[in-house]
Design a protein around this nucleic acid. Structure first.
Length: 216
DNA sequence: TGCCAGGCCGGGT
DNA sequence: ACCCGGCATGGC
């Protein structure tokens, strides 16, 4: 694909400018998966409060979260926003974990990406971005994560246009880049870090953005 | 103070 | 196949 060169160059520019990201924040694959669900359309700082609520009570485990009354789970994750619907989504995912691997999330690693991803998407509350975040950051599967920052950045640089959907943009990256878990991991992390700092919804900071030399 | 943040679902065209 | 309203907190 003709995008390989520019996408690699953008990656190297961001990497040299910002340094390593050490993503995803979280001490375990399960914590990463919980964070991926809680961060849906929400500020990460709020997600951290919710995760801290669980962790400080020693309740950040699949079995503990599945066995507690859902009203308790709702209260613990309240700071993450959308707490009623996110509690249900967490329970749906916990049920999936129990059925698939008896709550041991790392057991999912034995499954191939092509069989695991569709199964995860069947869980109500797990959409493409959440599934890919869990696959990539918790399970180390080579599935590129696309998010709102990715759409914004690629649109701003003329590499994606309005009618592209999640799958289109993911394919654009995965066709252009070598299949490399570490590369996918760091690339998405850098996009989010650059996006948070320089490319918010109202983008007026392009003069200082590490990627400004790529603007037409 | 209103706007925004690392989406997704369900119901309607 | 898209489009839209709903979901909710905390920081600036």
């Amino acid at each position: 694909m003709g995008n390989s060169k520019v996408l690699i160059e953008m990656y190297e520019t961001m990497s040299e400018s910002l340094g390593p990201s050490n993503w995803w924040p979280g001490d375990s694959p399960f914590e990463i998966a919980v964070g991926a669900i809680l961060v849906q359309n929400t500020n990460w700082a709020n997600v951290e409060k919710a995760i801290d609520n669980l962790k400080s009570r020693h309740l950040l485990s699949a079995q503990a979260m599945h066995e507690m009354p859902s009203c308790d789970l709702v209260e613990l994750i309240r700071p993450a926003g959308y707490f009623n619907i996110k509690a249900k989504r967490l329970v749906n995912f916990l049920e999936f974990l129990r059925n698939e691997v008896d709550y041991e999330i790392e057991g999912l690693k034995v499954q191939g990406l092509d069989e695991l991803r569709p199964k995860m998407l069947e869980v109500n509350g797990i959409g493409p971005e959440t599934a890919d975040a869990i696959l990539l950051y918790a399970l180390e599967k080579p599935s590129f994560v696309v998010d709102a920052y990715t759409f914004r950045m690629m649109g701003r640089h003329g590499l994606a246009w309005e009618n592209m959907n999640y799958h289109d943009l993911q394919a654009l990256f995965m066709d252009a880049l070598p299949e490399d878990v570490a590369l996918y991991n760091e690339y998405h992390a850098l996009i989010v870090r650059v996006g948070k700092e320089w490319c918010k919804k109202k983008c007026g900071l392009c003069e200082n953005c590490p990627l400004n030399s790529f603007l037409n």
